[in-house]
């Protein structure tokens, strides 16, 4: 197992390099000249050239990318590089980018985790119930709600909830603060509802699919009580795709948090990033996007490894380190998730 995890971590390296490269290239072509912004419009050409040199912007693209990863030596603008946990300083606030991210990311994590818990605790049980009682009233209602939930823009839902609970009824605040649990109710609900819909639909269809399998039929034919058939035979198997979708949703929630944070003026990484985009603060944008992508990838890896504990087939292929088999199983789940 440890060898396997190590192997997977190593496989992460090229992916993360790719992510940083894409984001770095994107921001490289961004219009707006940081040197000009730093100096203001009245800079002399000589000062401008000097500034460009100081900021390291005169170097070729690949050299700049290398510096981003491995560091750049300069008294004012130098930094240790991404690999050493130093992403340089913000052009606007001159604060350390990594510290800014670390200051706001826990808030985003709190929001996303809350939303994920909300979604899983609501979506999984309701999904199971509507699969067991297919075509019941609960099934119909939850299906309609889930369909509407997926189609609803998060930011609109947020505003509707603000209108109803904050503006009209007035018992929930419309601005969120990580130190005030009550103020977290609306953002967590907003962000969580979309994932609830997805998790519910996934749970329902996974359960339905598994309730029709031969081994569930075998369990019934053995005389197992129905609740045991559901719990021991169906649910455990259904948990595999459910865990996948929950894991993937966590990543989506980190992305969705960007929008939610905006609306509730919540001090998370999305807010920082947005401010940076508005101010063309390249190091800050670069750092935030790379950081979120990093967390997203690591979460997916953790979901991956979790399979090993649920599914003996995967565990076996891990132990015999035949990751080929594992890949097949994984791809099958992914395609199943996509299909739903």
């Amino acid at each position: 197992m440890p060898r396997y995890i190590l192997k997977r971590l190593l496989m992460l390296v090229p992916v993360l390099l790719g992510v940083t490269f894409i984001v770095f290239s994107l921001l490289h072509i961004t219009p707006g000249d940081p040197a000009l912004i730093a100096l203001g419009p009245n800079a002399t050409p000589a000062a401008y050239e000097q500034m460009k040199k100081d900021m390291g912007l005169d170097a070729p693209f690949l050299v700049q990318y290398k510096r981003f990863l491995l560091g750049y030596k300069h008294e004012v603008f130098g930094y240790k590089g991404l690999l050493f946990g130093d992403l340089g300083r913000s052009y606007v606030t001159n604060r350390n980018v990594f510290e800014m991210i670390m200051g706001s990311f826990p808030n985003t994590l709190l929001l996303a985790t809350g939303a994920l818990l909300f979604a899983a605790l609501l979506g999984v049980p309701v999904g199971i119930l509507s699969a067991i009682r297919q075509y019941s009233v609960l099934d119909m209602v939850s299906t309609v709600m889930a369909l509407a939930g997926v189609a609803m823009p998060v930011f609109w839902l947020a505003m509707v909830l603000i209108y109803v609970f904050a503006e009209t009824l007035g018992f929930l605040p419309s601005l969120a603060d990580p130190r005030n649990p009550v103020s977290m109710i609306l953002p967590i609900t907003t962000l969580g509802l979309y994932s609830t819909a997805l998790i519910l639909r996934m749970t329902r269809s996974a359960m339905l699919e598994i309730m029709r399998t031969d081994y569930v039929r075998t369990a019934r034919a053995k005389g197992m009580d129905e609740h045991l058939v559901v719990r021991k035979h169906a649910l455990r198997n259904a948990m595999i795709p459910i865990v996948t979708v929950i894991g993937l949703e966590f990543g989506a929630l980190l992305g969705g948090a960007v929008l939610t944070e905006q609306i509730f003026a919540y001090p998370g990484i999305g807010t920082i990033m947005f401010k940076a985009i508005g101010e063309k603060d390249t190091p800050q944008i670069l750092g935030s996007v790379c950081f979120v992508a990093l967390v997203f990838t690591v979460v997916n890896l953790i979901v991956d490894i979790l399979y090993g504990f649920i599914d003996p087939r995967v565990k076996a292929s891990i132990q015999s380190s035949k990751s080929v088999n594992f890949k097949v199983v994984w791809n099958e789940f992914i395609s199943r998730v996509r299909r739903k």
């Binding site: 994107l26 989506a252 969705g256 944008i285 979120v292 997916n300």
Partner: peptide, 11 residues
């Protein structure tokens, strides 16, 4: 491995 909305925003 970049959340979709984030990728669109970045682009």
């Amino acid at each position: 491995s970049i959340p979709t909305i984030l990728l669109s925003i970045a682009i």
